[in-house]
Write a protein that binds this DNA or RNA. Sequence first.
RNA 1: UGACCCAUGGUGUAAUUGGUAACACGUCUGAUUUUGGUUCAGAAGAGUCGGGGUUCGAGCCCCUGUGGGUCAACCA
Length: 563
Amino acid sequence: MKESEEINKPESQHFIEQAIEKDLAEGRNGGRIHTRFPPEPNGYLHIGHAKAICLDFGMAEKYGGKCNLRFDDTNPTKEDVEYVDSIKEDIQWLGFTWEEREFYASDYFGKLWEFAVSLIKRGLAYVDDQSAEAISGQKGTTTQPGTESPYRSRSIEENLDLFYRMNEGEFEEGSRVLRARIDMASPNMHMRDPIIYRILNTPHHRTGTKWKVYPMYDFAHGQSDYFEGITHSLCTLEFEVHRPLYDWFIDQLKTDDYRPRQIEFNRLNLTYTVMSKRKLLELVKDNVVSGWDDPRMPTLCGLRRRGYTPESIRRFVDLIGYTKVEAINDVSLLEYAIREDLNKRAPRVFGVLNPLKVIITNYPEGETENMEILNNPEDETQGKRLVPFSREIFIEKEDFMENPPHKFFRLAPGQEVRLKGAYIIKCNGVKKSDVGEIEEVHCTMDPATRSGGPDSDRKVKGTLHWVSAAHALDAEVRLYDRLFSDEDPSGHKDVDAREFLNPGSLSVLTGCKVEPSLAGSGPLTRVQFQRIGYFCTDYDSRPGKLVFNRTVGLKDSWAKQNK
RNA sequence: UGACCCAUGGUGUAAUUGGUAACACGUCUGAUUUUGGUUCAGAAGAGUCGGGGUUCGAGCCCCUGUGGGUCAACCA
């Protein structure tokens, strides 16, 4: 039955899978599939990278191939080992492995140098002595062809000599570059004699001061693919115009039938979320956030600390798909993915964000009962826990109203509610302070309504969570409205990320009370506080205090109704 | 006033490659429920950017227009 359904409903493939299967069918590259994930170690990975990671590793997995991890470290001025380590950690956290295939573009500096020399010898590259301004001035515009550099037809010997001397440290940064000799009139700007090597005096995090010249992205990426035997070089849409140049270099390099192929897909955009690495770096450097792993950040480590599971992120990526459309994905889909996952795995516990004391006047003073409660009603294998109950408890302030509107199902004078896992109680009155604030709610309980008791199936309008005042643990809770503010920066061009990370998106609640069963729960323990939402214990806890980050809220139709 | 890419419910994707628009999220009902959660049942919502053409038949092919994106870093 199930099988026939699967047969009738074939998995639809995205265009990249189709392209790969076509290549496979045509026997290209000997039927090999080999991809790579090529981050530049200049920042932390964010959820946008997760989309690329899932594709690169996913395609290799699906088609019995391999996926390399390759750090695209051709610009020492921006890169650092700190980032290398975090990137590796995040990929593994997502559940992928590159096995022993950890590579660096800088591994190929020697080969790249030789290839450049070979291009010079073939008259396909030359040293240009002009300034950056002069070169860009000659580039022409998108509608007008460029003009040729006066150095374009230097002799091979002179080019060779100059290129060697560039790498000896004889010339200043910016004084000379090596350019590919292609076509200054090409309608594609990238083909107008692109710069392929520049002089940089910053020491490289891996090769130190060995090199004085460094290859540009276009002169490193495709060749690195070629050196590694990559068959499918998957990248984002903005590299589409680079493809002719990618192919041009491969043409000059290849010696047999093997050739890597670049395929572009749409990058991940999320509503209300700033995704630019440069802007995220600003937030970190200016201490607007506590670090790359601040739970408000869309970085993988930020999401992790916020309580997102790797499964939920992979599921989300799966849901949004791969196309060539510049899409903006709604965060609600991400939130759905984490809710779906946590709903299955997170144990339910009681917690009270804004405590309101309830005194059960007919409950004996000093007595304590341990209520046995299912950790997850949908999954009995998660067991039960004992929650202490006593005369004085806390409930959520929001769960009591002195003058309730119509259809308010919770506690109010004269109204009955069930305390989940315990008794049905009825409110008889309140005690107010001099200024009229409600300090205590006075209730009576019905012993026969204890969970499992004779009258336990009596229907009441609402069920509240609660925490015994004497047993409750202090906690600090951080609520995040969204990753960023209500205004949607994803549609804006050059936004200042700070403007969108408004302080209102984070509120820190102290004086919160949680169930004693939470004592000693380690960092990144994910729980669902009944009626409040899904939370994650933070490793940033201070001694003696439990700190929770809200992962995502519950769907709350009552709140929605009353907006 | 160029090259390349893109256009399907509010959002993201599908459509056996030319056979009469499907799925998920979101939204809205209703039922169950010791979480106003979950689960379950159901509904509304696009006729596929416009205009031509080919065809018995077009979301898929062709032409043309419109709209959007990318490209003129010694960044990746």
